[in-house]
């Protein structure tokens, strides 16, 4: 499949689009699960950029970094979901807007 290689700028642009899709998802959705998924989307955008640059500079540190990002994303998703579960246990629903104790 390497014959489907596109110019590097395209991959970066694609990564950027994915990243901003994730940002919009984080800001605009009330369901915390979907927020976490949007965060995963952002992580993947970053991974795409890393891998692109690894290919560009023929340096597999990019791959390593992407691998570590995946690991961290997994850990963070786990903890995030644990928080959601705990919040769900307190009141029988979850809504991002409920966490408004810091309202000033």
């Amino acid at each position: 499949m390497t014959q489907w290689l596109a110019p590097m700028e395209s991959y970066i642009a694609l990564s950027a689009v994915m990243f901003f899709l994730g940002v919009v998802g984080v800001i605009a959705r009330r369901n915390p699960l979907i927020v976490l998924m949007s965060i995963e989307l952002m992580f993947n955008a970053a991974n795409l950029a890393l891998v692109t640059f690894a290919k560009l500079w023929a340096n597999n540190t990019g791959h390593i970094f992407a691998f570590l990002v995946i690991t961290v994303a997994a850990a963070e998703a786990a903890i995030g979901l644990a928080i959601v579960v705990v919040a769900f246990r307190k009141q029988q629903y979850v809504d991002v807007d409920e966490a408004s104790v810091l309202k000033g």
Binding site: I27, V96, S100, G104
Partner: peptide
């Protein structure tokens, strides 16, 4: 600015 809403804070971070 201190709406208390997480989403607004996320927007400001962004």
């Amino acid at each position: 600015f201190q709406t208390g809403l997480v989403r607004v804070y996320a927007l400001s971070i962004a």
